[in-house]
Amino acid sequence: MSDARNSILTRLRATRDAHPPTPPASDFAPIEAKQWAAEERLPRIRRLMEAVHTEFLDATKADWPQVLREFLAREGVGSLLYAPGTEAGKQLVEGGERGPIPTLIPYDRPLEDLKPQLFETIEAGLTTTRGAIAETGSLILWPTAEEPRTLSLIPHIHIALLRTDALYDTFLQAMREQGWAQAMPTNALLVSGPSKTADIEQTLAYGVHGPKRLVVLVIHQ
């Protein structure tokens, strides 16, 4: 279909050059102006995300595996999929021996070999985040070879670790400071709550295709 390509591009170029538009300058100041004090960011994120049924747990760098295990026990969650190659994955396995132990399932093979389990039995998935955004109450997810995309998508409960030293004001600020444009991963995501829909008569319902529950485990620095 290269014919289509060339004819489309030739036509666009010719007609554009016949009437060259002069777009106004792109002034990003209205977005750059959106700022919150450091201590306001987490409460704002929490408020916005809780408004769409996100749950929050508080922990420290040392005790989060323990807090997580207690949560899973409390909620009767029997299986947790995790990324064994990440620091967090290692800490999860090592830490919290004192707590009750759910079945920890390492995501250590291709999706194709894990599909039935993922769709049918695994209850929860654990991921890290690359921070969160105060303006909209959004987590930044950055799946990698170690931490696959479906970890945060298919299990009914998605648990995300959020470090309090990676809170941004806006999406724009996050992508600038983290240099996204220079190295986009296969998939980058903003996640602002559990899966939801209002397609039936504008009535909000949670858990339509993606996770039914989103639990943010805040690791206070």
Binding site: T136, T186, N187, L190, S192, S195, K196
Partner: peptide, 14 residues
């Protein structure tokens, strides 16, 4: 304020 997911795809499985 934002949709639940903003999904940015930059390629197939590597």
């Amino acid at each position: 304020p934002i949709t639940t997911y903003v999904n940015m795809i930059s390629g197939p499985r590597k």
